[in-house]
């Protein structure tokens, strides 16, 4: 196993992110085959910084989480920057994953999370019959959804961007997408595209790398997703280019079971805490911040969106 990391020549590549990394994790980063940037995401530093609740009210969901000993959430494992399983370490890295781990730590004292990845259209059903405690991960707060689910949040407001092949100069405005094939992932990005660009032809691919391939290979003219995700991809893949187009806003919330409003209040209180004590900012720096240039955004105001 001594030849586990055969290639160290681009340690330089990770150097730029080094000052940041020092606060994100204690361990030394090594170049691995594949996307070096994804391997450098490690939010354990931010999680260590996260708060633990003092006394919690007893609610059915909290009782269940305590009894089980870990938080069970519906989310993704293949969304770089937001929730991606690090195959080397087994840790789930990213902003959304970090929020889930912080919530687990807040409730239990330890950041233990089990992620169920059944797809974006199973979330309401799974919350409805308590097969998961929460749904975290590009889950857009919407009023019609709020009839089935209690949303705590928003904890992040995403805007849709448009990514094209590096040599594509045709797509300048949103209207240029009319009648063209646009790749989207099911969920928030799809909803936003259907609403804001009704004349575009959505082509759905589950994984972000599949969407990127579809653009590179010319199967679609563009890929629309939240700007942070796209920016991260365009930094890594030189064949892809981020356009200036931005549209829509998707307030991401934490879905909680409808029949346990007291639990939602606890989660809202949790969001207030991590936004106020700097954990939220630290988490952003360790995750999306590693992939994208630019300043850390300000956290949104919890409860500021209809449905939350």
């Amino acid at each position: 196993m001594s030849t586990r990391y055969p290639n160290r020549r681009s340690a330089l590549f990770a150097l730029g992110a080094l000052p940041l990394l020092a606060s994100c994790s204690g361990s030394e980063t090594e170049r691995t085959a594949g996307n070096p940037r994804y391997a450098t995401i490690d939010q354990s530093g931010a999680i260590a910084h996260g708060p633990v609740a003092g006394r919690l009210p007893r609610t059915p969901t909290i009782d269940e989480i305590r009894q089980r000993g870990y938080l069970r959430q519906s989310g993704s494992l293949t969304n770089p920057g937001f929730a991606l399983e690090n195959v080397k370490t087994g840790a789930v890295t990213g902003f959304d994953a970090g929020i889930a781990q912080l919530l687990a730590k807040y409730l239990l004292g330890k950041p233990e999370v089990d992620t169920v990845t059944g797809g974006s259209d199973t979330r309401e059903a799974m919350l409805g019959n308590h097969s998961v405690d929460v749904a975290i991960g590009t889950y857009t707060i919407k009023e019609n959804r709020a009839r089935l689910v209690n949303f705590a949040g928003p904890y992040y407001v995403a805007h849709s961007g448009v990514l094209v092949a590096a040599d594509n100069r045709d797509i300048r405005r949103l209207s240029d997408l009319d009648g063209r094939r646009v790749a989207v992932q099911p969920g928030a990005a799809e909803e936003s595209l259907r609403k804001e660009v009704p004349h575009a032809i959505p082509v759905l691919f589950e994984q972000s790398s599949q969407n990127a391939s579809a653009v590179r290979q010319g199967r679609v003219v563009a890929w629309s997703a939240n700007t942070a995700l796209l920016l991260g991809k365009s930094v890594i893949d030189k064949e892809l280019r981020m356009t200036d187009i931005a549209f829509g806003s998707s307030p991401f919330g934490i879905g909680t079971p409808k029949d346990d409003p007291a639990f939602k209040s606890v989660v809202v209180e949790f969001l207030h805490r991590i936004m106020a004590d700097g954990t939220w900012r630290k988490l952003w720096e360790c995750t999306v911040g590693v992939l994208t240039p630019g300043p850390v955004p300000h956290p949104p105001r919890v409860g500021s969106v209809p449905g939350s």
Binding site: T32, A33, G34, N35, Y38, A39, L77, T78, P80, L84, E85, N86, V87, V116, T117, G118, G119, Q207, S208, S209, Q210, S213, I236, D237
Partner: peptide
């Protein structure tokens, strides 16, 4: 791969996403 059970093909999916080598 569809239900998100971490069997071989699903792990292949995660590996492809993590490494970018589909």
């Amino acid at each position: 791969y569809v239900v998100g059970l971490s069997e071989l093909l699903n792990n292949g999916k995660i590996l492809s996403e993590f490494t970018g080598n589909f």
